[in-house]
Structure formats: C-alpha cells, structure tokens
Simulated assay, not measured.
Amino acid sequence: MSSYLEKNFEEWKEIRSRVDSIINGVFILAGGGLSLSISIILGNKGSGIITNEVQCVTAIAWWCLLASVIFAVLLKAYMVLEAFLLQINSQWVDKHLKLLNSIGWVIGIFVFFTLASGLCLMVYGAQIAVQA
C-alpha cells in the first residue's frame, strides 16, 4: 500500500468514526422520540388531550423522524460504498471526489433537517396539547 493510500485510509477512518458518532446520536434521538411519542399518543388518545390538530402535527413529526433514520442509514451505506470504491479504484474516486463528497453532504443535510423538523414538530404538538 502506498503512502498516499495509507494517508487516505486513515482520513477515511477518522471521517467514518465521526459520521458513526453523529448517526448513532440521530438513531437515539429519532428512535427515542418515536417510541415515546407513539406510546404517549396512543395511551392518551381517548382522554381528550390529544386533539385532531395534535394528532396531525405528531403524525407529520413521526414521518420526519422516520425519514431522518432512513436517511441516516442511507448515509452510512453510502460511506461504506465510497470507502469500498476508494479501495478498488482510487483514481476514479480522486477524479470524482467533489461529486462524491457533495452527495454525502446532501444526504447528511437531509438527515439533519428531517431530524430537526421532527423534533420541532414534536415540541409544537406537545405545546398544543398543553395549551388545550
């Protein structure tokens, strides 16, 4: 293995480690938010606290949180694919590095915005329920 490939490999390990940490946080936040909110909504559905507006906002939040988990899994799979391509054809990866990095960033931005939207909508739904 050449010095360039070794350096590239070490950089990829570091990036992958950071992405894994961030994505694991997404899984915890989104998964926890989904499981807790579903339990609370279903447990209190007949109590009158959960209005149609709260149900609608919460349902949209659930879809956003689910989308963040799906995009996070997609990002992890994409990072594995990119690392694999780097090992089998590093010249091609070097030639298309800007495009490959841009795709990863776009997926990552979708993860962030769907997670943030889902969490904000969960808070908004709770606010509506408290004010009712």
Rank of each mutant, 00 (worst) to 15 (best):
N52F: 02
L97I: 14
V111D: 04
L81P: 09
T114M: 06
K98D: 15
V80F: 13
I70V: 15
A67W: 05
F27G: 05
L81A: 12
I49L: 13
S47I: 01
F27N: 08
L66Q: 02
V57S: 09
G43M: 09
E82D: 13
L85H: 07
I49E: 13
L99S: 09
Q91C: 08
D94R: 04
V93Y: 04
N52Q: 06
L29I: 12
M79Y: 10
G125H: 00
F71T: 03
T51W: 07
F112Q: 10
V57Y: 02
I40L: 12
A67K: 05
Q55Y: 01
V57N: 08
L66T: 13
I41T: 09
D94T: 01
G46E: 15
H96A: 09
W92Q: 13
L36T: 11
L97R: 14
A126G: 15
G125S: 10
V26Y: 03
Q91M: 04
W63F: 14
S102Y: 04
A72L: 02
Q55E: 14
S90Y: 15
A61L: 06
G48C: 13
L97A: 13
K98A: 15
V93I: 11
K76V: 13
K45N: 14
I41C: 03
I107A: 06
A83M: 14
D94V: 06
S37F: 07
V57D: 00
F113C: 00
I28W: 04
Q127Y: 15
V106C: 06
N52T: 06
K76A: 08
A72D: 02
I41A: 04
H96Y: 15
Q127D: 15
L36K: 08
G43D: 09
E82V: 14
G104M: 07
L121R: 00
I103G: 06
G43N: 01
A59G: 03
L74Q: 09
L74W: 11
L121S: 05
L100S: 10
K76C: 05
V106A: 13
V69H: 04
G108Q: 03
F27V: 05
L75W: 01
L100R: 02
I109N: 00
W62P: 02
L99D: 07
L81T: 11
I109A: 12
N44E: 15
I41R: 09
S47L: 05
K95D: 07
Y78C: 07
L34F: 00
F112E: 04
V106M: 09
A72K: 01
V123C: 10
V69G: 02
W105G: 15
S39P: 03
A77L: 14
T114E: 05
F110E: 03
L119P: 06
N44R: 11
N44W: 12
G33C: 07
N44I: 05
L75P: 04
E82G: 05
L115N: 06
I40E: 04
Q87K: 15
F84Q: 13
E53I: 12
G25Y: 08
M79S: 07
W92P: 05
L119R: 00
T58A: 11
T51C: 06
F71I: 08
H96E: 14
S90E: 15
I50H: 10
A116I: 10
V93E: 03
T51M: 08
F84S: 15
L97T: 11
W62H: 12
G43Q: 02
W92T: 06
G33P: 01
L34N: 03
S39R: 09
V57H: 00
L34Y: 00
A83P: 03
L119S: 01
N89C: 07
A59S: 14
I107P: 07
A116V: 11
N89R: 11
